[in-house]
């Protein structure tokens, strides 16, 4: 199963987003949180992202879903084409779309594509 890592500036945001994603995608979804700096502050930690990545990596690939800024830049340093990819998507919607697709057993490319579709989700009307 493809793993999902939520990379956010805040530990609380990442943990709660991961809980929400698991709640919607199902407890079997491989979702890990990597939020904030190692000392608990706001920011990004490569070490925390690497640990989260290792925790959800079952060999089928991992999608990193960053919030913004340094999360995006740090996540991009871990990209391995075809194995570890960064989703350019809204944080919550993208993570849910990716996790739901991943927990259905879809391959990495399909999980990434599902996440990217979330970029165009309309909440109030059809475009």
């Amino acid at each position: 199963m493809v793993g999902i890592v939520l990379v956010a500036h805040s530990a609380g945001l990442a943990v709660e987003a991961a809980a929400l994603v698991r709640g919607i995608a199902g407890a079997g979804a491989l979702v890990a949180a990597a939020g904030g700096t190692e000392d608990g502050g706001l920011g990004t930690s490569l070490d925390l992202i690497e640990k989260a990545l290792a925790a959800v990596d079952r060999g089928d690939g991992v999608v990193l879903v960053p919030d913004l800024g340094s999360s995006v830049l740090t996540a991009r340093l871990l990209e391995e084409p075809g194995r570890v990819v960064v989703a350019d998507v809204p944080f919550v919607e993208g993570a849910i779309a990716a996790a739901v697709t991943a927990s259905a057993g879809a391959p990495l490319a399909a999980v990434l594509a599902a996440a990217e579709e979330a970029r165009d989700f309309r909440k109030l009307s059809n475009p």
């Binding site: 490569l46 340094s70 340093l77």
Partner: peptide, 13 residues
């Protein structure tokens, strides 16, 4: 890259 925590870390790193 490992110790800055902000965007300048990955960029300068």
């Amino acid at each position: 890259i490992r110790r800055v925590g902000g965007a300048s870390g990955p960029l300068y790193g």
